[in-house]
Nucleic acid binder design. Structure first.
Lengths: 198, 198, 198, 198
DNA sequence: ACATAACCGAGACGGTACGTCCGGTCTTGAA
DNA sequence: TTCAAGACCGGACGTACCGTCTCGGTTATGT
């Protein structure tokens, strides 16, 4: 079940991209990431499992980073809603909990770890991470802080700092493999960055 | 200049570790990290530059993570003092600035990025990161927050959260290659986690 | 002159064997065998000289024995004719002389010594020696004795013994590095096994 | 039983050769040869099994060839008597049978194969084979032929040829791993070289 | 109807790195 | 002076993966 075992004799459908191939590659990448993690991930193995040629993969995903982003994004729930109840602390607690659960229970956590790792060795991967990933995925989160500032819950001048702190916190836990529920810590973090007292 | 070009015919000094070899290996690893970064780092190349045998390297640093930690730690300034002036906000600003400068201007920034990347693919590397590195290097920082709590500047219940937020923030900036001075951001961050919110 | 110095940027010609690469590898192996002999022979060095990747070599010649056989066989003169003048003694003298000269003056002598040496340490190499080499190369020689038996020059019951004696004699001289012309010895040997005693 | 497991703390007995060490090394070499054969034979492993230092081994047996010769010679039965009943054919049959059995059932067969293989890659080993081994061990065999010639059974001019043929025959069977009893072949060989009819 | 162009799986190519093993040399410290 | 021990450099081992290239075939599109 885990290994893709794609249709063995899928062929070209003419002078345009083959969606079956794309799906098979992403599925293979996802499974490989789950089974072997970043260190055991190779384009060769993805091609083998997907029954695809390596040039086909390189044509559509020139770097591993692109592939990791595609795996992350392909996940339906990846676009789960950032809550907005009018209470920043409560929203942050809910969002953190949902995010960690998503990272734990889907290939996306693995994919994101791999993406960050890849970005440490390649300028192109770092650029992809920042431009193709962070630029879009951080937007809803930023909006959350902006709306809280608009309500006067936090100072406008502290939006960037709070965003960076919050994002960094989640990365830190992800990269150290500590994504287990920790209600106390999550609540405390939300309290620190979700409330204006200064 | 960059490549070590070690003495070509350094020989054994008997049945015990040779400090000259150790120094040559660390120097080579450091330079390689500076020149090529994580992706271009290989034990083969370190051995070539250090004029050392690969088995010698594997004998003393069984994983790349061990080597990265050694490079980070070998830096004299790696143990720079965490300031303690009795004012947490001011201390955090000073420490952040010093840390980023250290990461920018020594091989340690590269080494740490490499260490974190390596930890994403190998359980052993992750364990090394947490046990051989974080366990000791986070202690002074934790003490800083504990003393602030002792003074009543921050609540005791918020120490762990503030530590995680602050460490995560620094990681986030390091891993995204954004370590340029940004006095405004640093001050804002220090304001958020360096002040009592109740 | 000796080292092949192959075209440095020979590339793939698609999903099939590249004859230029094959030629470069065989040439490099041949030269290396001439220069360094069996002890100094390594796949690494062959790859370096041929400008080929090691996997390419292992793909087509999985063991050193295969490579040695290929070098031996590649020699045009390796298929030199076994004389058949109707006189076994005379034929043996001529053949022995030609064989020794061939072994002395081409890389094949070295290749054969290496092949035999390799077969002493590896079952696979021994099998290759017997099945891929002796099985075919001994056939003309066996025919020579059979025809002599058909003529009544030697007893039919002595064919196998004479063949083993003669082959062993040549091996013995090759393996001890004594292939210089020795007309007296060669004639005496031909007299012993080329004449009917029964 | 097979692995030597030498006394763990045998130490120097002063400024002279230690016979216990010599015995342990030879025993280890013998067992290693039996278990792994020529390809798996290494000085490192012999030192480990014998509980000896590598320099100690290199001091007394500078090349592997020396060690192989020592293993061969250490065998009590290595000096088994060449029969001399006054009938060359009968003597050759008896001797061949005894020799093959000795090669099959003692480490000496392995040691000799290893010695010949080693001699194909090293001039020193080839010299050792010829001067330290063949020179002495072929003497009784040569005497056998000489006495037959003295009796008039074979011509004096054919001694060298018959010796080379017979030795080569035995080598050939040893090196191709075909030492099983083959009474018919042995008898036929003895008939060819043990009788004068020319 | 047919040529063209882009895509497809396949897999060989030159390279490089992996982690391990061995070869032969050297030094130590004890006897 | 010898011994066990073991570190040293160098380099080969056989395998995996990288990213590129060529093949031979398929199919949609534009003429």
């Amino acid at each position: 079940m885990a290994a893709a075992k794609a249709a063995p004799h899928r062929t070209s459908i003419g002078a345009r991209r083959n969606p079956q191939t794309e799906a098979a590659v992403l599925q293979a990448a996802r499974n490989l990431l789950i089974e072997k993690g970043y260190a055991g991930f190779s384009i060769d193995e993805v091609a083998r499992r997907a029954g695809a040629g390596k040039p086909t993969i390189y044509r559509w995903w020139p770097t591993k980073a692109d592939l990791f982003i595609a795996v992350y994004t392909a996940d339906k729930d990846a676009a789960f809603v950032v809550p907005d109840t009018g209470n920043l602390r409560r929203d942050l607690v809910a969002y953190t909990s949902a995010l960690w659960s998503f990272w734990r229970n889907s290939p996306s956590g693995r994919a994101f770890r791999a993406l960050i790792a890849e970005a440490q060795g390649s300028e192109a991967a770092l650029a992809a991470l920042k431009e193709k990933f962070l630029a879009t995925r951080l937007a809803p989160l930023r909006r959350l802080f902006e709306q809280a500032a608009a309500r006067g819950d936090i100072p406008a001048a502290g939006i960037a700092a709070r965003l960076a702190l919050y994002v960094g916190f989640n990365w830190y836990r992800l990269l150290t493999g500590e994504l287990d529920e920790d209600a106390g810590l999550i609540a405390a973090v939300a309290a620190v960055i979700g409330t204006d007292k200064g």
